[in-house]
């Protein structure tokens, strides 16, 4: 029983991290119909920028917004200067993001070197709550809390505001949205920047327990894909459910069948895709 409780807790907190990464990916797909293969790079770069801010200012609290905002600006520039130029050409845009992923990878290696690094977690989060024989790290509880807050804000904005309605309209039918006077170009830009922001936020927070190292970008990317595929693309609710499923499957799979752990993660994903190409909660 203890095993299951702990695995569930670890799975959910890991899923929380994945939600930050994948919700942006999902929204970007919804609005622009492209898969951003540089999304893992945002995660990694966010963590690196945060690390630098910590080195300079010694403030972890400052590092979180600094990392996320810097990457949001990079994302915004990438969308404006390069992706926008291609107009509506999903395949070329996807390939372009691959090029950027390679560039970011090399840039990160040059600027921050090849060592494994950790984002130091402040003292007040670096302890565990003990109940019986179980230890629950407070940092992971903090992660779940952050994602709960971010999730609620996103949900409120998208479901309850005019801006949210405009975004939903663009996700459903960009052409029609343009037809009724919605500036889909600006929406794309905003959503792309938001996605980069969320991924970088995930990187900063995740850097406290997964560490920060070269190759992390391409390591988390497939996980983010797993999430949006299971949850369906362009759907926030799907991203949440998907990230919980992936987080739990990843942890439990690794615990039960270490030899097949990735297989247990990706094989169900393939099955879901085969049966319903738009994902469990995707809009057609």
């Amino acid at each position: 029983m203890d095993f299951w409780i702990l695995q569930a807790f670890y799975g959910i907190s890991y899923g929380a991290l994945l939600f930050l990464l994948a919700s942006g990916l999902s929204l970007i797909f919804g609005v622009m119909r492209i898969v951003n293969l540089a999304h893992g790079s945002y995660f990694l770069l966010g963590a690196y920028v945060a690390l630098t801010v910590i080195w300079v200012t010694d403030s972890w609290l400052l590092a979180i917004p600094a990392g996320a905002l810097t990457i949001a600006i990079i994302g915004l520039a990438m969308e404006r200067i390069f992706l926008r130029q291609l107009g509506f050409a999903p395949l070329r845009q996807v390939l372009l993001t691959v090029g950027f992923a390679l560039l970011f990878q090399q840039g990160a290696l040059d600027l921050w070197g090849g060592d494994n690094m950790f984002i130091p977690v402040p003292e007040y989060l670096n302890w565990s709550i003990q109940t019986g024989t179980l230890f629950f790290p407070v940092y992971r509880i903090f992660m779940i809390a952050v994602v709960a807050v971010v999730g609620v804000i996103l949900w409120l904005v998208i479901e309850k505001t005019t801006l949210g309605a405009v975004i939903r309209a663009t996700v459903d039918d960009a052409e029609m949205a343009r037809g009724i006077g919605i500036d889909t170009s600006t929406i794309s830009m905003g959503v792309f920047a938001l996605g980069a922001f969320l991924a970088a936020l995930g990187g900063v927070i995740g850097g406290g327990f997964t560490g920060v190292y070269p190759g992390l970008d391409f390591e988390v990317l497939p996980l983010a894909f797993a999430v949006v595929i299971i949850g369906g693309m362009g759907s926030l609710r799907g991203a949440l459910i998907g990230s919980m499923i992936v987080g739990l499957m990843d942890n439990i799979g690794k615990g039960l069948f270490p030899e097949l752990s990735y297989f247990t993660l990706y094989a169900p994903m393939v099955l879901i895709l085969a049966v319903k190409p738009t994902g469990l909660f995707g809009r057609e």
Partner: peptide, 28 residues
């Protein structure tokens, strides 16, 4: 599994299938 999908979905499903093979290679 893959041929049903088109466009970007095909790209993602082939990526997922590639990850299945990688997962097996890495862990088995």
């Amino acid at each position: 599994f893959a041929i049903r999908a088109t466009g970007v979905y095909f790209l993602i499903i082939t990526l997922a299938l590639g990850m299945v093979v990688w997962g097996l290679a890495n862990r088995w």
